[in-house]
Protein backbone atom coordinates (compact mmCIF):
# COMPACT_ATOMS: atom_id res chain seq x y z
CA UNK A 1 0.00 0.00 0.00
CA UNK A 2 2.98 2.32 0.47
CA UNK A 3 5.07 2.81 -2.64
CA UNK A 4 8.76 1.96 -2.72
CA UNK A 5 10.28 5.44 -2.82
CA UNK A 6 9.23 6.18 0.75
CA UNK A 7 11.95 5.84 3.35
CA UNK A 8 12.06 2.18 4.18
CA UNK A 9 10.58 1.04 7.44
CA UNK A 10 8.95 4.36 8.40
CA UNK A 11 5.31 3.21 8.29
CA UNK A 12 6.27 -0.06 9.94
CA UNK A 13 7.86 1.74 12.86
CA UNK A 14 4.77 3.90 13.29
CA UNK A 15 2.55 0.83 13.20
CA UNK A 16 4.67 -1.08 15.72
CA UNK A 17 4.43 1.90 18.03
CA UNK A 18 0.64 1.95 17.70
CA UNK A 19 0.46 -1.72 18.66
CA UNK A 20 2.80 -1.14 21.55
CA UNK A 21 0.56 1.61 22.88
CA UNK A 22 -2.53 -0.55 22.53
CA UNK A 23 -0.90 -3.40 24.38
CA UNK A 24 0.13 -0.99 27.13
CA UNK A 25 -3.45 0.18 27.58
CA UNK A 26 -4.74 -3.37 27.43
CA UNK A 27 -2.49 -4.73 30.13
CA UNK A 28 -3.44 -1.98 32.58
CA UNK A 29 -6.30 -4.27 33.59
CA UNK A 30 -5.37 -7.71 34.87
CA UNK A 31 -8.90 -8.94 34.09
CA UNK A 32 -8.39 -8.13 30.41
CA UNK A 33 -5.14 -10.06 30.42
CA UNK A 34 -6.88 -12.98 32.15
CA UNK A 35 -9.61 -12.87 29.48
CA UNK A 36 -7.00 -12.92 26.73
CA UNK A 37 -5.32 -15.87 28.46
CA UNK A 38 -8.56 -17.86 28.61
CA UNK A 39 -9.40 -17.13 24.97
CA UNK A 40 -5.91 -18.05 23.78
CA UNK A 41 -6.12 -21.30 25.78
CA UNK A 42 -9.51 -22.19 24.30
CA UNK A 43 -8.44 -21.46 20.75
CA UNK A 44 -5.25 -23.45 21.35
CA UNK A 45 -7.33 -26.39 22.60
CA UNK A 46 -9.62 -26.12 19.58
CA UNK A 47 -6.77 -26.08 17.09
CA UNK A 48 -4.65 -28.80 18.69
CA UNK A 49 -7.45 -31.00 20.06
CA UNK A 50 -6.27 -34.15 18.17
CA UNK A 51 -2.78 -33.73 19.62
CA UNK A 52 -3.80 -32.72 23.13
CA UNK A 53 -6.58 -35.24 23.70
CA UNK A 54 -5.41 -38.37 25.58
CA UNK A 55 -8.02 -40.46 23.74
CA UNK A 56 -8.81 -38.82 20.39
CA UNK A 57 -11.04 -41.74 19.32
CA UNK A 58 -13.42 -41.02 22.19
CA UNK A 59 -14.65 -37.87 20.44
CA UNK A 60 -17.01 -39.87 18.23
CA UNK A 61 -19.19 -42.93 18.57
CA UNK A 62 -16.66 -44.94 20.59
CA UNK A 63 -18.19 -47.17 23.29
CA UNK A 64 -16.53 -48.86 26.23
CA UNK A 65 -19.14 -49.87 28.81
CA UNK A 66 -16.45 -51.45 30.97
CA UNK A 67 -15.24 -47.97 31.88
CA UNK A 68 -18.51 -46.09 32.00
CA UNK A 69 -18.91 -43.24 34.53
CA UNK A 70 -15.48 -43.58 36.10
CA UNK A 71 -14.54 -40.66 38.40
CA UNK A 72 -11.56 -38.43 37.53
CA UNK A 73 -8.32 -40.39 37.63
CA UNK A 74 -4.86 -40.29 36.11
CA UNK A 75 -6.08 -42.20 33.07
CA UNK A 76 -9.16 -40.04 32.62
CA UNK A 77 -8.34 -36.69 34.26
CA UNK A 78 -11.96 -35.52 34.14
CA UNK A 79 -13.60 -38.93 34.38
CA UNK A 80 -15.62 -40.83 31.77
CA UNK A 81 -19.21 -40.57 30.58
CA UNK A 82 -21.95 -43.21 30.42
CA UNK A 83 -20.44 -44.79 27.31
CA UNK A 84 -17.01 -44.96 28.95
CA UNK A 85 -15.54 -42.14 26.84
CA UNK A 86 -12.87 -39.79 28.22
CA UNK A 87 -14.54 -36.47 29.09
CA UNK A 88 -11.39 -34.36 28.71
CA UNK A 89 -10.85 -35.63 25.16
CA UNK A 90 -14.47 -34.95 24.26
CA UNK A 91 -14.28 -31.46 25.75
CA UNK A 92 -11.20 -30.62 23.72
CA UNK A 93 -13.00 -31.64 20.54
CA UNK A 94 -16.05 -29.76 21.80
CA UNK A 95 -13.95 -26.57 21.87
CA UNK A 96 -13.28 -27.15 18.17
CA UNK A 97 -16.94 -27.34 17.35
CA UNK A 98 -17.91 -24.37 19.52
CA UNK A 99 -15.19 -22.04 18.32
CA UNK A 100 -15.61 -22.82 14.63
CA UNK A 101 -19.38 -22.60 14.85
CA UNK A 102 -19.13 -19.24 16.56
CA UNK A 103 -16.67 -17.91 13.98
CA UNK A 104 -18.91 -18.99 11.10
CA UNK A 105 -22.10 -17.60 12.68
CA UNK A 106 -20.50 -14.24 13.41
CA UNK A 107 -18.87 -14.22 9.97
CA UNK A 108 -22.33 -14.47 8.43
CA UNK A 109 -23.80 -11.91 10.85
CA UNK A 110 -21.06 -9.41 10.06
CA UNK A 111 -21.20 -10.04 6.32
CA UNK A 112 -24.95 -9.46 6.24
CA UNK A 113 -25.29 -6.91 9.01
CA UNK A 114 -22.59 -4.41 8.03
CA UNK A 115 -23.68 -3.71 4.44
CA UNK A 116 -27.30 -3.40 5.50
CA UNK A 117 -26.44 -1.06 8.37
CA UNK A 118 -24.23 1.02 6.10
CA UNK A 119 -26.96 1.36 3.48
CA UNK A 120 -29.63 2.21 6.04
CA UNK A 121 -27.42 4.66 7.92
CA UNK A 122 -25.67 6.41 5.08
CA UNK A 123 -28.20 6.47 2.24
CA UNK A 124 -31.32 6.22 4.39
CA UNK A 125 -34.48 6.92 2.46
CA UNK A 126 -37.23 4.37 1.92
CA UNK A 127 -34.81 1.48 1.47
CA UNK A 128 -33.07 2.40 4.69
CA UNK A 129 -36.39 2.65 6.52
CA UNK A 130 -37.42 -0.76 5.19
CA UNK A 131 -34.14 -2.34 6.30
CA UNK A 132 -34.41 -0.91 9.78
CA UNK A 133 -38.05 -1.90 10.27
CA UNK A 134 -37.25 -5.50 9.32
CA UNK A 135 -34.28 -5.36 11.68
CA UNK A 136 -36.49 -4.05 14.47
CA UNK A 137 -38.91 -6.96 14.03
CA UNK A 138 -36.03 -9.41 14.37
CA UNK A 139 -34.66 -7.57 17.39
CA UNK A 140 -38.02 -7.76 19.14
CA UNK A 141 -37.68 -11.55 19.42
CA UNK A 142 -35.01 -12.99 21.75
CA UNK A 143 -32.33 -14.68 19.63
CA UNK A 144 -32.66 -18.01 21.43
CA UNK A 145 -36.41 -18.09 20.79
CA UNK A 146 -35.91 -17.22 17.14
CA UNK A 147 -33.21 -19.86 16.78
CA UNK A 148 -35.48 -22.40 18.48
CA UNK A 149 -38.26 -21.65 16.00
CA UNK A 150 -35.95 -21.99 13.02
CA UNK A 151 -34.34 -25.24 14.14
CA UNK A 152 -37.76 -26.68 14.98
CA UNK A 153 -38.79 -25.99 11.41
CA UNK A 154 -35.63 -27.57 9.97
CA UNK A 155 -34.06 -30.92 10.74
CA UNK A 156 -32.16 -30.75 14.05
CA UNK A 157 -28.43 -30.94 13.32
CA UNK A 158 -25.37 -28.78 13.83
CA UNK A 159 -25.48 -27.06 10.42
CA UNK A 160 -29.10 -26.09 10.85
CA UNK A 161 -28.39 -24.81 14.35
CA UNK A 162 -25.69 -22.63 12.84
CA UNK A 163 -28.07 -21.30 10.21
CA UNK A 164 -30.70 -20.63 12.87
CA UNK A 165 -28.31 -18.69 15.12
CA UNK A 166 -26.91 -16.65 12.23
CA UNK A 167 -30.50 -15.89 11.22
CA UNK A 168 -31.16 -14.52 14.70
CA UNK A 169 -27.86 -12.69 15.01
CA UNK A 170 -27.33 -10.42 11.96
CA UNK A 171 -29.88 -7.75 12.99
CA UNK A 172 -27.72 -6.81 15.99
CA UNK A 173 -24.91 -5.91 13.61
CA UNK A 174 -27.20 -3.96 11.31
CA UNK A 175 -28.42 -1.96 14.30
CA UNK A 176 -24.87 -1.42 15.59
CA UNK A 177 -23.46 -0.27 12.25
CA UNK A 178 -26.54 1.86 11.60
CA UNK A 179 -26.02 3.74 14.86
CA UNK A 180 -22.29 4.12 14.24
CA UNK A 181 -22.84 5.45 10.73
CA UNK A 182 -25.45 7.94 11.90
CA UNK A 183 -23.08 9.43 14.45
CA UNK A 184 -19.94 9.25 12.30
CA UNK A 185 -21.82 10.92 9.44
CA UNK A 186 -21.97 14.07 11.55
CA UNK A 187 -18.23 14.05 12.25
CA UNK A 188 -16.28 16.94 10.90
CA UNK A 189 -13.85 14.84 8.93
CA UNK A 190 -16.77 13.50 6.93
CA UNK A 191 -17.95 17.02 6.20
CA UNK A 192 -14.37 17.93 5.33
CA UNK A 193 -14.27 15.09 2.84
CA UNK A 194 -17.57 16.19 1.32
CA UNK A 195 -16.20 19.70 1.04
CA UNK A 196 -13.28 18.33 -0.94
CA UNK A 197 -15.75 16.81 -3.38
CA UNK A 198 -15.66 13.15 -2.28
CA UNK A 199 -18.55 10.96 -3.45
CA UNK A 200 -20.79 8.87 -1.19
CA UNK A 201 -19.02 5.54 -1.81
CA UNK A 202 -15.66 7.01 -0.96
CA UNK A 203 -17.04 8.59 2.21
CA UNK A 204 -18.82 5.41 3.29
CA UNK A 205 -15.87 3.08 2.77
CA UNK A 206 -12.85 5.31 3.38
CA UNK A 207 -14.08 7.69 6.06
CA UNK A 208 -16.93 6.07 7.96
CA UNK A 209 -16.37 2.31 7.95
CA UNK A 210 -12.73 2.37 9.13
CA UNK A 211 -13.89 4.26 12.21
CA UNK A 212 -16.62 1.73 12.96
CA UNK A 213 -14.30 -1.31 12.88
CA UNK A 214 -13.19 -1.10 16.48
CA UNK A 215 -16.77 -1.08 17.79
CA UNK A 216 -17.65 -4.02 15.54
CA UNK A 217 -14.59 -5.92 16.70
CA UNK A 218 -15.54 -5.41 20.35
CA UNK A 219 -19.07 -6.64 19.68
CA UNK A 220 -17.78 -9.68 17.79
CA UNK A 221 -15.51 -10.57 20.70
CA UNK A 222 -18.30 -10.26 23.26
CA UNK A 223 -20.65 -12.22 20.99
CA UNK A 224 -18.23 -15.13 20.53
CA UNK A 225 -19.09 -16.30 24.02
CA UNK A 226 -22.81 -15.73 23.66
CA UNK A 227 -23.05 -17.58 20.35
CA UNK A 228 -21.30 -20.55 21.95
CA UNK A 229 -23.74 -20.36 24.84
CA UNK A 230 -26.72 -20.25 22.47
CA UNK A 231 -25.43 -23.13 20.35
CA UNK A 232 -24.85 -25.23 23.46
CA UNK A 233 -28.34 -24.35 24.62
CA UNK A 234 -29.83 -25.58 21.37
CA UNK A 235 -27.79 -28.77 21.53
CA UNK A 236 -28.81 -29.29 25.13
CA UNK A 237 -32.43 -29.14 24.04
CA UNK A 238 -31.71 -31.66 21.32
CA UNK A 239 -32.10 -29.14 18.51
CA UNK A 240 -28.42 -28.71 17.69
CA UNK A 241 -25.57 -31.16 17.57
CA UNK A 242 -26.78 -34.74 17.99
CA UNK A 243 -25.13 -37.50 20.05
CA UNK A 244 -22.53 -38.85 19.79
CA UNK A 245 -21.03 -35.55 18.61
CA UNK A 246 -18.74 -34.14 21.30
CA UNK A 247 -20.52 -30.81 21.72
CA UNK A 248 -20.57 -29.16 25.16
CA UNK A 249 -24.36 -28.73 25.26
CA UNK A 250 -24.95 -32.28 24.12
CA UNK A 251 -22.48 -33.54 26.71
CA UNK A 252 -24.35 -31.71 29.50
CA UNK A 253 -27.64 -33.15 28.26
CA UNK A 254 -26.19 -36.66 28.31
CA UNK A 255 -24.50 -36.25 31.68
CA UNK A 256 -27.29 -34.46 33.53
CA UNK A 257 -29.36 -37.60 34.20
CA UNK A 258 -26.46 -38.95 36.28
CA UNK A 259 -26.36 -35.92 38.57
CA UNK A 260 -25.50 -35.61 41.38
CA UNK A 261 -23.81 -38.97 41.93
CA UNK A 262 -21.73 -38.92 38.75
CA UNK A 263 -21.30 -35.14 38.83
CA UNK A 264 -18.28 -34.93 36.50
CA UNK A 265 -20.16 -35.94 33.38
CA UNK A 266 -22.20 -32.71 33.23
CA UNK A 267 -20.15 -30.33 35.40
CA UNK A 268 -16.95 -30.15 33.33
CA UNK A 269 -18.63 -29.31 30.00
CA UNK A 270 -20.68 -26.73 31.90
CA UNK A 271 -17.52 -25.20 33.31
CA UNK A 272 -16.05 -25.09 29.81
CA UNK A 273 -19.02 -23.03 28.58
CA UNK A 274 -18.81 -20.79 31.61
CA UNK A 275 -15.08 -20.15 31.15
CA UNK A 276 -15.48 -19.49 27.45
CA UNK A 277 -18.24 -16.91 27.90
CA UNK A 278 -16.29 -15.29 30.74
CA UNK A 279 -13.05 -15.23 28.74
CA UNK A 280 -14.57 -13.59 25.68
CA UNK A 281 -16.40 -11.07 27.85
CA UNK A 282 -13.27 -10.03 29.71
CA UNK A 283 -11.37 -9.79 26.44
CA UNK A 284 -14.13 -7.69 24.90
CA UNK A 285 -14.06 -5.29 27.84
CA UNK A 286 -10.29 -5.06 27.54
CA UNK A 287 -10.56 -4.22 23.84
CA UNK A 288 -13.08 -1.52 24.70
CA UNK A 289 -10.49 0.07 27.02
CA UNK A 290 -7.96 -0.05 24.21
CA UNK A 291 -10.17 1.43 21.52
CA UNK A 292 -12.19 3.90 23.50
CA UNK A 293 -10.60 7.19 22.54
CA UNK A 294 -12.61 9.00 25.19
CA UNK A 295 -10.65 7.38 27.97
CA UNK A 296 -7.76 9.79 28.11
CA UNK A 297 -6.64 9.10 31.61
CA UNK A 298 -3.52 7.34 30.44
CA UNK A 299 -2.22 10.39 28.74
CA UNK A 300 0.09 12.70 30.58
CA UNK A 301 -0.40 16.41 31.00
CA UNK A 302 -3.57 18.45 30.59
Amino acid sequence: MIAESHPAGEPTVARAQEWGKMWFRFRQSSLSVAGLGIVVAIVFCAVFAPVLAPHPRHAGSFVDFENSLRPPSLKNPLGTDDAGRDILSRMLFGARISVSLSVIVLGIAVAVGIPLGLIAGYWGGRLGDAIMRVTDVFLAVPPIALALAVTAALRPNLTNAMIAIAFAWWPWYTRLVYGQVLSLKEEQFVEASRGLGAGPLRIAFREILPNAWSTILIKVTLDMGFVILTASGLSFLGLGAQPPTAEWGTMIAEGRIYLPGYWWAATFPGLAIFMTVLGFNLLGDGLRDVFDVHIEQWQAGS
Binding site: F189, A192, G195, L196, P210, N211, W213
Partner: peptide, 16 residues
Protein backbone atom coordinates in the same frame (compact mmCIF):
# COMPACT_ATOMS: atom_id res chain seq x y z
CA UNK B 1 -11.89 25.11 0.56
CA UNK B 2 -12.63 25.07 4.26
CA UNK B 3 -10.51 24.67 7.39
CA UNK B 4 -12.54 23.60 10.39
CA UNK B 5 -12.42 24.72 13.98
CA UNK B 6 -11.25 21.60 15.68
CA UNK B 7 -8.43 19.77 13.90
CA UNK B 8 -8.91 16.87 16.32
CA UNK B 9 -12.22 16.05 14.64
CA UNK B 10 -11.67 17.30 11.10
CA UNK B 11 -8.92 14.76 10.41
CA UNK B 12 -9.94 11.11 10.10
CA UNK B 13 -8.26 9.40 13.08
CA UNK B 14 -7.72 6.18 11.10
CA UNK B 15 -5.75 7.75 8.26
CA UNK B 16 -2.11 8.73 8.12
Amino acid sequence: QIVFQNPASSLNPRRR
